[in-house]
Lab assay of single mutants.
Amino acid sequence: AQEYRALYDYTAQNPDELDLSAGDILEVILEGEDGWWTVERNGQRGFVPGSYLEKL
């Protein structure tokens, strides 16, 4: 798994998404072809927009 940093804040719109704060460090589990990536942070897993992340 790769570590990424959130570039922007994101507020989850659905229960299966995660909130992001700019600067958060996340582990990317799966890069979805639809642009939604499965990530894990502090034991929580959910979808976030891949375009909001940069690889560390």
Rank of each mutant, 00 (worst) to 15 (best):
L26H: 01
L20D: 01
R45D: 04
E33Q: 14
I25E: 08
L56M: 10
A6N: 00
G32R: 14
L18G: 01
E17N: 02
G43D: 08
D9W: 02
S51P: 08
Y4I: 06
Y52S: 09
L7I: 14
G43L: 05
D9S: 12
E33L: 09
V48C: 07
G35M: 04
Y8E: 09
V39R: 00
A6C: 11
Y10S: 01
R5W: 06
S51Y: 12
D34H: 10
F47L: 15
L56T: 13
L30G: 14
Q44R: 12
L7F: 04
F47R: 15
S21H: 13
P15D: 10
G43K: 11
G35F: 03
R41L: 12
T38I: 13
W36P: 05
T38G: 08
N14S: 12
A12K: 09
E54G: 07
V28Y: 04
I29V: 13
Q2I: 08
D9Q: 07
P15I: 12
A12V: 01
L26F: 05
Y4V: 11
E31D: 05
S21D: 12
Q2N: 14
R5F: 13
D34L: 05
E54I: 04
D34E: 09
P15H: 11
K55A: 07
R41M: 12
L53S: 08
E40F: 04
V28L: 14
I25W: 05
G32W: 05
Q13R: 12
L20A: 02
P15Q: 10
L30W: 12
N14R: 12
T11K: 14
I25A: 08
V48M: 00
N42H: 11
E31Q: 12
L18N: 01
P49K: 08
V28T: 04
Y52K: 05
R45K: 11
A12N: 01
Q13E: 10
N14M: 10
G23N: 07
L7Y: 02
L30I: 13
G46Q: 00
D16I: 05
G32H: 11
D16Y: 10
D9M: 04
T11C: 12
L26Y: 07
R41E: 02
A6T: 04
Y8K: 15
A12M: 04
W37M: 12
Y52V: 10
